[in-house]
Nucleic acid binder design. Sequence first.
RNA 1: GGCGCUAUCGUCUAACGGUUAGGACGGAGCCCUCUCAAGGCUCAAAUACGGGUUCGAUUCCCGUUAGCGCUACCA
Length: 490
Amino acid sequence: MACRVSYPEILMLRVRFAPSPTGYLHIGGARTFIFNWLYARRNGGTMVLRIDDTDVERNTQASENSIFEGLNWLDLGWDDFCRQSDRRHVHQQAAEAILERGMAYRDFTPASSTEEEHSHDGGPWLCNPGMRELSRSESDRRAGAGEPFVLRFRVPRESRSEVVVKDLVYGRVTKSTSDLEDFALLRSTGVPTYHMASCADDADLRISHILRGQEHLANTFKHVLIFEALDAPMPQFAHLPLLMAPDGSKLSKRKHGPVVSVTTYRDAGFLPHAFINFLCLLGWSPKDNREVMSRQELIDAFTLENVNHSNAVVNFTDDDPFDPKAVWLNAEHIRSLDLDGLAAKLVPFAEAAGFETNFGKMRQIAPLIQERIKLLRDVSTAADFFFREELPPYDPNELIPQKGDRAMALTVLQTACDIVSTAEFTHDALEAALKSGAEKLKIKTGQMYLPVRVAVCGRKIAPPLFSTLEVLGRETTLQRVARAIKMLKS
RNA sequence: GGCGCUAUCGUCUAACGGUUAGGACGGAGCCCUCUCAAGGCUCAAAUACGGGUUCGAUUCCCGUUAGCGCUACCA
């Protein structure tokens, strides 16, 4: 009894991610998935995705869809799949086995008497009086007569003083058996509880390492007891620090809404890689000051020893749902994308914003905005003037350069109009032509470029001018410069 | 209430018991520059509190405080 069998090192390492479809996939869940995946890849193991859908009341199809949507977007994949609702017989048998071994008992106390549990001063509630001591024959008789009962684990408080968990992250954690209540295995409806179903499945699926949120650390003492009662090899446990909201509360789907949903990040134009990179840095670090890391670098660097023990807060606000560091990491990853890849990713975002475009056009635009956007959706604000037939109205005063006036703007644009209608439409030729235009007018180059920029982009803040003109083409440029001139004159 | 876990700049995090407590994001400033970015440089910013142990404590121990979790026939 003292020395439990655990999974031999040679055996295949198996991890699992077991979300319950009671809400959309949130970033905490995503991080648990990622850490499991990383651990499996790093150690040549297998990753199982198990949908823990035993809570029929709260399960929704929408939640399950959201989980798959999020997971698929992450683009990490899994090796094996199952759902708990298909495995009721496993849980049922496990519960019966524990009852047969005398390590569980039937509790016929009606469910209504739950409120008075809180009135226990000092110590914890341990069990309902009388039920633990019911003889087996009496118990069988009442059950046979159809009396409803809860199956409870008989915590061995007499034979054992404490339960020990050897956690790969938190180390040795113990709990006194006198602080552990006789927890439920089967509800009075016969449906197994989370603890029962989860452990029975983990044992049956031969999960060797359980990496999950720290909220389960306190549950693990119960789980250890169940694995022992099942006479199953003991998996290794590793608990992960929790993700918190800026106000210190635990991240929750209900309280924090879509800001914590994985699909929110996807829809805003995060690169899955950047998102993964960000999440990895919450509660874990490679300890060598690296931050921007590729998937392979993460796999190579990931160890449980480097997982922190304290919770991490995701720094979002009411105004901005995204942690600035996540945004920065995304910008970093966007910059390291090749232009073809970036263009391809940008197209759907431009289309979603209502612009008509295609890969060829986007491929021209991509280099101009690559280091100017932080999220893929920014394409709609950073490059809108490339897509629009006609520029939205803007203030003609914007056309007036620094230390210049309306007259200067007009002269500049008229000069530019001539240049643009004859010059070769390449970056270098346009630069040379506009530069000499400035010289001729005896003004600074900046004073020359600004009116043109505003004329073709509709604003002062835009990508570099000559490349922009090159992409826009002579026709459009001429049209927009002419319109600017008209606006200045009126 | 009981039990468990945790505590370094605003946030994410480094630091064999010996460092001017490091890096990153964000902020401020400067440089570069056709605007905006990107890039380069600089600055501000932290060991929760109180006791020990030690020549020496961010680091080890105890206490306090605070936060989180578990304490359900939720997961």
